[in-house]
Design a protein around this nucleic acid. Structure first.
Lengths: 358, 358
DNA sequence: ACCTTCCGGTGTATCGATGCACTGACACTA
DNA sequence: TAGTGTCAGTGCATCGATACACCGGAAGGT
């Protein structure tokens, strides 16, 4: 099929394949500038491109990174995938994308498949507390960066984790509402069985405590532990939670949602009940997806600096591929940022009532 | 690094590597059942997985498909990428994802890079009228499926195209509004220099003509041709268009947007002007992304059956890899579907005025 | 008894790039 | 002049799986 090989280039340039290979791999100090020019010319003329399979077979390496996200159907992960691809491209790496659909088994399968494809560096967006299912592959030399999941005590030592400071994010969201005068706050999320979700919730709670509000008095949504969280379903979770929480007598005046998709679902649910977001009820999201700003009303939210995180993730992987395996991984925590828009406001008149009854 | 090879398996099973290879490639009729069992046992015991690079070097094939989308940051493409991955996975293929950012040069680079990676089947989501920049690779044997871009007369013969019937979509959107009583309709889009966009616009126009409305009398947005369209920018385009179109005297009573992101931008722009979507102005989007239903008001839109399209795309690629190269590609056109929600309604009182002045 | 066919395999060249071990030519040094 | 170094390359085994030519033995036909 007209494959141009390194031998043909060598012949055209009047050198041996080894010398071409040396050039290809940056060892240009091993040849005269004139030789280099001849080889460059031959490469250009023949339109030669190295065969990756052969290269990989020989070296065991690939210029490909793996990315496992819950689902690119979710705008947050889609945006992150895009940023990560840009960052990888900038370093000369390709990106192999996988959607785990938050299924640990599928996650494990993908990681192993990527490994077999020769991918040695991967970014894993998981919130599972344990990485035990990946331990065998990590031991074989996988360089893993987890995203949106702070390091855990029993993680393998080489794992790098990149995440925002989730407790701080939860804290920022709740204290913003408290400063506006809210005293009855609800936290809405699907299952909390994930590291970052519990972290956000912890931050939420500590803001309440700092303001002298008893967390146990807050209206809570019983379905929180039961509902399996997916990404397309995130909005549905928010909607159902809103329906249930706001048709009760002790309803809150403000809500912190686990992410923007859930927040949008909450807004939808509130609208179903003829409650106005940003007037009757305040809502804070998390992530700052593009749609947060487009929504009506524009959503107050906690921004994650995804471009910076993506860049960091790629750099960490590349660094970890060059440094020795024995070196321990790091854990990078970035600052979340409160973005105030129109979905939050001081509590309405009804809020005052609730405050008295509290 | 502890790679288990076919030789080790062969040794363990007491056969030659060739026989193991035969088993691996489904040629089990060339061995005794007992031999097959011994090999299977050896594979299981050693945890052997074939080395892809070696396999690919030898055969030139890969079980990987390429997907080039404008940007997974756009929820529509994110959702499509997810569906395509599922479809590929179901057929035992992996997916290599690339974001072209609608840059033809980047698109070409990616296609060639995928080709060099051994990827022989790709789904390309482009709206460029010409595929000339990919012709060399297609001639070398690339199996290309274009998505969201109907076949063009001078496309290479082997190209398969999968798309909805875009003119019909535009027609459905416009006639829905006409049936509601609207007579002043605007079509909002970024640059129309793309096949499917002009197709949607043509459908829009023919619905007007069928109703005896003169397209040239319709308020149009001068920036339509000038603004470069991106995906994150789509919403911004809609917003700016709304600002300009609706601060004029001959403003329309209804809008058809080129896609949902633009439609959401339009809604945002209308809100800036204190116009109520679904009351003062009707808006129809295109795609039916998840957020269309979550928005306030929920967006009337033209749905694309992405799951079915993704499945079809994968099947076409796999089919085209097995059938001879000389066979011509097909063009599949699916039916779009009008999904009526709350962003459209009969024209308000102001609409009647406009009708009189027309 | 001889030839053919089929079965159940095996031996080996091959895919293309890599990198180590090596070499010939030359320069410098003691 | 022998000894030591450096420069600018070259030769070749190698990675793991595959395909194809080949082969011994048994069965079947005449």
């Amino acid at each position: 099929m007209g494959q141009v090989t390194i031998q043909q280039v060598a012949r055209a340039a009047g050198v041996s394949p080894s010398t071409v290979s040396n050039l290809l791999n940056g060892r240009i100090e091993r040849m005269l500038p004139a030789t280099k020019d001849r080889i460059d010319a031959a490469i250009a003329e023949l339109g030669y491109r190295p065969n990756r399979a052969a290269r990989q077979l020989r070296t065991g390496r690939t210029r490909t990174l793996g990315l496992v996200v819950p689902s690119v159907g979710n705008p947050f992960w889609g945006a992150f995938a895009r940023e990560l691809e840009s960052a990888a491209l900038a370093q000369g790496y390709n990106l192999l994308l996988c959607n785990s659909e938050r299924d640990p088994e599928r996650e494990r399968r993908y990681v192993e498949e990527l490994w077999e494809d020769g991918v040695r560096g991967m970014v894993l967006c998981t919130s599972l507390p344990s990485l035990a299912h990946l331990a065998p592959t990590i031991e074989r030399g996988l360089h893993l960066v987890t995203f949106d999941r702070p390091a855990q005590p029993d993680d393998p030592a080489s794992v790098v984790s990149i995440s925002i400071n989730n407790p701080m994010g939860g804290y920022l969201a709740a204290s913003h509402l408290i400063e506006l005068g809210h005293r009855r706050l609800a936290f809405i999320s699907g299952s909390l069985r994930s590291v970052n979700r519990t972290a956000r919730y912890r931050g939420f709670c500590s803001a309440l405590e700092a303001a002298g509000i008893d967390v146990d008095d807050m209206p809570s949504w019983p379905g929180m532990d039961a509902v399996p969280f997916g990404d397309v379903e995130a909005a549905e979770v928010g909607r159902r939670a809103a329906h249930e929480l706001f048709s009760r007598a002790d309803r809150p005046t403000a809500v912190v949602a686990i992410n923007d998709m859930t927040a949008l679902g909450v807004c939808r649910g509130l609208r179903d009940l003829d409650l106005r977001v940003g007037k009757d009820v305040s809502v804070v999201g998390f992530d700052d997806i593009v749609l947060a700003d487009l929504y009506d009303p524009p959503l107050t939210t906690i921004r994650q600096p995804i471009a910076e995180m993506a860049r960091l993730a790629v750099e960490e992987i590349i660094a970890s591929e060059t440094r020795s395996d024995t070196e321990a991984g790091r854990s990078v925590l970035l600052r979340p940022e409160l973005v105030v828009r129109a979905s939050t406001a001081p509590p309405a008149a009804a809020g005052t009532e609730a405050e008295i009854s509290a």
